[in-house]
Design a protein around this nucleic acid. Structure first.
Length: 435
RNA sequence: GCCCGGGUAGUGUAGAGGCCCAUCAUGGAGCCCUGUCGAGGCUUCGACUCGGGUUCGAAUCCCGACCUGGGCGCCA
């Protein structure tokens, strides 16, 4: 009985059993009288051992001619041997080359020679064969699954909002225009307006994980033109409630990765620490006071009302050293749908920060149509183009709050990666639309 | 958008006007080798992004194009 098994499903105690493995030829080491073929699959490696005097010469001849990274099926017997990498090896009885790989390879999958990110992305299919790269995407999967379960358990309903839209959500950011039959339309920068409309629809609590598109001409290690946003919106709650939800989610994600992705973390050579909740909350005004006291003029010259520059974010990150919230931002620095507090200069808003960068932003929303209309107007936008949105506010819109969390930023900060492109299979930036 | 940097075999690198028909590693081809796990030893193959210019002489200096890395700005 021979069924296909992953390398990770085999252990030394299975000595004597037959196994069929399918995967890629990672390496061949021919020592003369003995040859080793390392087979790699999603779960790891297995050593196929050819003691040349004991093995069928035809089989040996086939094995010697296989190029690296070819796809093969190996049938053989599991043999415990403490000299073998995982404590076992496979003595082959049959090898089939399902598909040979060309040579030379575009990248080295064994880690002997590095490759630049650009080279890696051009041959992403091969880059991902490297265990430390695969590990990132296994963790990404864990984070997504955990998020879905978490939000489900908290009574949130998953929604899907359109990615082709007629108007900008915020007005500020650059959009990608597209041709929609004979009209102009845009790729959606955010599900914001639609998830708010769902509050008016009575769904109460909703979430969406979906791509967002930004046409900004930024070229940094922490920006993408196509990113994945984890968005929630909830009714009859305030912004503190959704902050608690957010910090609980972050802690839950770290816990699930730490406990459920041990092999991936070890492939990446890192260990992660679960952040303690509740996260620190500092007000925007406190942050400005702190920054004004610094020596570096680039930081200290910030004035109340400014957005925080990268240098300012780094200084606050250094000060606090763990996840934190900056709350109560100037109303003018936040989008029109953000609810002002009793002091109209200050809004009921927050950004979730990792010491390295911003991860999420959210707020209490305006639910009164008159206030919302005047805020749109005050931001220099035309309320008429938001009519589809404002309609939902005229017929019973509950108080609500929500946030949007950048999946890629969560991953890159969790895994201490330098470049956000590392956590996206096929990243889209100013210079890259293919593959 | 602004400011700096870089393009050398498939991959990663050395190189600072003649020492370069270009270094090293990895890789491919071939030979030797019975326990490798970045195997080892020997032989061999393979590259200066493109176009102009300066110079007796350019991988090296200058200009342009293209590609690319980083910082800032911008950015739910």
């Amino acid at each position: 009985m021979q069924e296909r098994r992953f390398t990770g499903e085999i252990n030394p105690s299975m000595t004597g059993e037959k196994a069929t493995l399918k995967g890629w030829v990672h390496e061949i080491r021919d020592l003369g009288g003995i040859m080793f073929l390392i087979l790699r699959d999603r779960e790891g490696f297995a050593q196929i051992t050819f003691p040349k005097k004991k093995i069928d010469p035809d089989l040996l001849e086939v094995a010697k001619r296989i190029s690296r990274e070819s796809v093969i099926t190996v049938k053989g017997t599991i043999q415990e041997d403490k000299r073998a990498p995982n404590g076992y090896e496979i003595i082959p009885e049959g090898i089939t080359v399902l598909n040979p790989a060309n040579s030379p390879l575009p990248l080295d999958t064994t880690g002997k020679v590095g490759a630049e990110l650009d080279t890696r992305l051009d041959s992403r299919f091969m880059d991902i064969r490297r265990p430390e790269v695969l590990a990132i995407f296994r963790i990404r999967d864990k984070v997504l699954t955990t998020t879905r379960n978490f939000l489900n358990e908290h009574g949130f309903i998953e929604i899907n909002t359109p990615k082709i839209v007629a108007t900008a959500t915020e007005g500020g950011t650059a959009l990608f225009p597209i041709t929609y039959f004979n009209r102009e339309a845009f790729l959606s920068q955010s599900p914001q307006l639609f998830k708010q409309i769902m509050m008016g629809a009575g769904l109460d609590r909703v979430w969406e994980i979906a791509p967002i598109f930004r046409a900004e001409e930024h070229d940094t290690t922490r920006h993408l033109n196509e990113a994945t946003s984890i968005d929630i919106e909830a009714s009859f709650v305030d912004y503190e409630d959704v902050m608690v939800l957010l910090e609980d989610l972050i802690a839950t994600l770290y816990t699930s990765v730490k406990e459920g992705c041990e092999k991936s973390l070890s492939d990446l050579g890192i260990d992660i620490e679960v952040p303690k909740t509740p996260f620190k909350r500092i007000t925007y005004t406190e942050a400005i006071d702190h920054l004004n006291g610094m020596d570096d003029p680039e930081i200290s010259e910030i004035v109340w009302g400014d957005d925080l520059s990268a240098a300012c974010e780094h200084e606050l990150g250094r000060l606090i050293g763990e996840h934190y919230f900056i709350i109560d931002w100037p109303t003018g620095s936040k989008p029109y749908y953000t609810r002002p507090s009793r002091n109209p200069e200050i809004s009921l808003s927050f950004d979730l920060m990792h010491p390295r960068m911003e991860l999420a932003s959210g707020s209490q929303r305006i639910h009164e149509v008159d206030l919302l209309t005047s805020r749109i107007d005050a931001m220099g936008l035309n309320p008429d183009s938001f009519e589809f949105y404002l309609r939902a506010f005229r017929f019973g819109m509950p108080p609500h709050a929500g946030w949007g969390l950048g999946l890629e930023r969560v991953l890159m900060t969790m895994l201490a990666l330098e470049n956000i492109r590392e956590v996206v299979l096929f990243p889209r930036d100013m210079k890259r639309v293919s593959p």
